[in-house]
Write a protein that binds this DNA or RNA. Structure first.
Lengths: 204, 204
DNA sequence: TCTTTTGTTGACTAAACAGTCAACTGATTT
DNA sequence: AAATCAGTTGACTGTTTAGTCAACAAAAGA
């Protein structure tokens, strides 16, 4: 089967990091290759273009991420607890990134999506898909919480859209302001937004 | 006083449109000059760099926008009415853009801010400033609504942060999905989020 | 062993890019 | 009318960029 290598993986990791810490437009193929320790010839052996690589990286990252979200949003966990864990997870994740990179980087999907949506149709479609899937986690948690009588949300999908927009906005602001403190309101904001009774709220 | 021209203005308009319809990183100085009908020599006569021009354009645009927002958020208008008008304004604005450009483009500040915040400190600071000012409009409307007994928001600043994040998230999603329908939930989402009693809600 | 498959390399091209500059133009002042 | 001020121009530089390619290298199968 000829020789094998992890150059493909290294390229995907490199592009993910470069786009996230910088931007899609400012990331060059030469930079990606340097970071991955791969020569440009090899790059074009595996991928057709930067967009092609970014798409592959996006898919790979989402497959990892999905496993984590499946765990956080497991139906065995009480619905409001799922949301609390999700907020905590987001906080912890961004805190680690800041420690490592010196910057709060927010949600890579939103940042990339907003940047390239008018230019790279393939990427745009994939990002739309993934965002839709992420929203579904919220929707089912909200539906379950409603069924449990903890919140009043007859239209779970609509509430999920509101909550999702709120989270996306928070992440974007955290990136722009390079601030973690904004994210700390997430849980309170969630309870607030869903009208969770004080008795059902768990803050720490 | 030598001769005068509007090349500076044309450059600012060109860069605003190019960044908004595309992205900061994918916008080149040659493109800006072409669109403005200005030669590169003139560009460098007025500005030091793309970032310098973008900063100037940002300030100019904000000065226009502020006047509109001052009118929408006039203290003479009932507080919840202000928010409703703001949502309507955002909807109408994006609808016009879509008609003109074929795309929903969302909030230029958020898109640009998220893209360049790790790269262009000058722009980042300015965007942070403007976003903060925008948030203030919401804060005073919320405070007034609380004072009028229409909503329960003892901490107006906190509520404003939540509402602002929600709006930003909505605009970002509208851009990414190239969809206006998402924005149509804004008013309902606002009432929902603020816990406005049905009696105080005005939808159309 | 030698052949095939899979991956690597560096040198290359052509285009796009940012940034510079001296010479020019056309209003305005004196 | 001459001096000055404000803006314009196009041709230029050097660099960065995406993308190509033929030759090479290593693992695996025949």
């Amino acid at each position: 089967m000829g020789r094998c290598s992890d150059a493909k993986q290294r390229l995907m990791e490199a592009v993910s990091e470069l786009i996230w810490t910088g931007s899609y437009g400012s990331t060059t193929i030469d930079q990606i290759c340097d970071k991955a320790g791969v020569k440009k010839g090899s790059f074009y052996y595996f991928f057709d273009s930067k967009a092609d690589l970014a798409l592959a990286a996006l898919e790979a990252n989402w497959n990892c991420k999905r496993a984590e979200l499946d765990s956080i949003f497991s139906p065995t966990v009480p619905p409001l607890e799922r949301l609390r864990r999700y907020c905590e997870y987001g906080n912890k994740y961004q805190r680690e990134i800041q420690k490592k990179c010196g910057c709060v980087l927010g949600c890579p999907l939103l940042t990339l999506g907003a940047e390239i949506c008018t230019q790279e149709v393939g990427l745009q479609k994939k990002i739309q898909e993934i965002l839709e899937q992420k929203r579904k986690y919220l929707e089912s948690a909200i539906r379950d919480a409603h069924a449990a009588g903890q919140i009043d949300a007859p239209d779970a999908a609509a509430k999920a859209r509101v909550l999702f927009a709120y989270y996306q906005g928070l992440q974007a602001e955290a990136r722009i302001k390079n601030s973690l403190t904004i994210l700390q309101d997430a849980i309170r904001g969630t309870y607030d937004l869903l009208g969770v009774k004080a008795a059902d709220q768990v803050l720490a």
